[in-house]
Design a protein around this nucleic acid. Structure first.
Lengths: 357, 357
DNA sequence: CTGAAAGCGCTAACAT
DNA sequence: ATGTTAGCGCTTTCAG
């Protein structure tokens, strides 16, 4: 029943509404309408509504009353043309399909709206060329600020530099070297310290890194952090696998590792997605986790918890990262002059079955 | 040469115009700059660039040359104010964190950009109030079109109706009843037919539905489709579990099912996320999939493939849905008058280990 | 405290 | 084919 019903009604309704053309296209209320209705000039009406200038108490109240009476809402476009500011923040992520970025976008969106801005989202698909193109569009569209997860530690820089001077920018999660912009991300070193302490507790003697290449800052930093922890803990370490932050890379790492004679006690993956692909890949080759080898992840995506085995991982404080980043960004938009911040937020460890002997 | 030329000119011009203020804030090239440099009026310059009106071949070439020389790009805001059109498409999804929607957004974004629009993305978090608020903002911001995954079959309607008359709208994946707008989604009935045929092939005799409630169109339709297939195939069916499209609901379904005396041969989940939560939940209760019970999903998210066991699922043709939806939407934006379309795209089955006896 | 008027950059009448 | 000009809706000098 449901379906037929919908269609009938839908069609009928459509016929009824459309008609000759826009009989009912009620042109929206403009500031002039409000001014006239309130018996003041358009200038006074503007001042009364924005509150940025001296207007008598009485007038303000009257204008405001009339405005809400008429259902007036400023035209953001006219305002943008006049002010040169859109109250839009543009965001660029490498891959929205990566659950970690989806989580990050979600958190950022909330902060952006809370701050009274809209979010214009774009996906670079990991290509600096696309990233550059999107950044340029942001500049042309006169967004007030840009929140970016740079896809390339080095190559993301030129496009960032080409942004209109004075445009507020904040980097999240990953950074481009020498970008003169604030950055907020996880403390990778702290994360790996947690991970290694945990592995040592589990009696692990040898580890192998399966992470991303050096193209992204996190790829590079996590590999550095891994090496530093190997030093600190004195664990044995084998040839690393370096790919991308993806499930696919995890599977490839699995194939590569299995092809070697011996497995280490534990494999430290550069992200949860890699860990997931890794475990699935190992399983295909008959290697069981955690029975035959332990595996750790990084990021703390929800799916890691319900995977079998659940992934031991470093949980990124996504909300905190988003909050700080947007706070910084809005600060810059409002012109608060200050030194460039490089902010590292401490993560936490979430132990799972994947490292449980 | 070109580039230096531009910058020199720009800077000189800026300095000259601005005065004491922003010494380095290179004001961008305006249409007037182009007109003057090309020795024509601003109107002619506009015509030459937009190509919407008769201009001599010569002039067109000269203006275009000068424009690209100077690096001119139209100001989208000024144009929007004048034309009343922003070349932006607004999109609303219930939860960007749901991998299926992330996939959908990705596909839509590609189509939107290919059509020469920008994408303004918003997340309703499943609340109609938020959805309504976002829709209103879209209207105010004068987006040219709206692509929406309505979060409520019924309650999403008012906000949709409140949109400025004539604003182009397309619904994806889910629909609101009686919304006078195009819709593109998967053919749920066809999907369940594939599923049931497969289950029957596996020798299944009894099934239970673990899906979403009737709040979303897909929740309602899939439950209907399930019942219809039960009729058609003559399988036995038990009391369904109805929740949300989430991992969490899957776990709850598992708890509910385990609490009953007997398990069916197969559990048909309303989505992959539910299936994932379900399998994880069953495992916690010592129930193995597929050994003790078979499980199917719906959507075809990547993670279903690497899960253990891999999920047998109905793969939605996400790219096709996005392509059709944006084609419809752009058609409406360009004023192609036509009847309202209700388009169902046929899915395919991807068998996995979760139904392999 | 308020009003008149300029003008953001562009497109589209309306002239020529 | 091209130029002149009005005006989209708003904020902000500049006067009073």
């Amino acid at each position: 029943m449901g379906k037929n019903c919908v269609n009938d009604y839908t069609l009928r309704y459509a016929a009824q509404v459309r008609g000759p053309y826009s009989e009912q296209m009620s042109r929206s209320v403009t500031l002039l309408d409000v001014a006239e209705a309130a018996g003041v000039s358009i200038a006074t009406a503007s001042r009364a509504l924005t509150g940025k200038d001296r207007v008598s108490r009485n007038t303000v109240e009257r204008v405001r009353a009339v405005a809400s009476e008429l259902g007036y809402r400023v035209d953001p476009i006219a305002r943008a043309l006049r002010e040169g500011s859109t109250r839009i923040i543009g965001m660029i992520v490498p891959v929205i399909g990566n659950p970690f970025f989806a989580q990050l976008v979600d958190a950022v969106e909330e902060q952006v709206h809370a701050a009274g801005f809209e979010l214009l989202l774009a996906d670079s698909h990991g290509y600096v060329t696309e990233e550059a193109r999107r950044l340029q569009v942001f500049g042309e569209r006169k967004v007030d600020g840009v929140a970016i997860v740079p896809s390339d530690r080095i190559a993301s820089l030129p496009a960032l530099r080409a942004l209109p001077a004075g445009l507020a920018v904040v980097q999240l999660d990953r950074s481009a070297e020498n970008a003169a912009a604030d950055f907020v991300g996880v403390d990778n070193e702290a994360g790996f310290r947690l991970l290694f302490d945990h592995l040592v507790d589990q009696g692990v003697r040898s580890v192998v890194f399966a992470g991303s290449d050096d193209i992204t800052s996190n790829g590079a930093e996590r590999w550095d952090a891994f090496q530093r922890e190997v030093q600190r803990t004195g664990l044995e370490s084998g040839e690393p696998y370096r790919g991308e932050f993806s499930i696919h890379s995890g599977s490839e790492a699995a194939a590569a590792l299995v092809a070697r004679r011996a497995l280490p006690d534990a494999i430290v993956a550069g992200s949860d997605l890699i860990a997931l692909g890794l475990i699935a890949g190992l399983r295909e080759h008959g290697v069981r986790v955690p029975e035959d080898v332990l595996v750790t992840g990084f990021d703390g995506i929800e799916l890691g918890q319900i995977y079998s085995p659940s992934i031991t991982t470093v949980v990124q404080p996504v909300d905190g990262i988003a909050r700080d980043a947007i706070t910084y960004l809005v600060g810059r938009i409002q012109g608060t002059e200050s030194a460039i911040r490089n902010s590292r937020i401490a993560p936490t460890l979430r132990p799972g079955r994947s490292t449980q002997r």
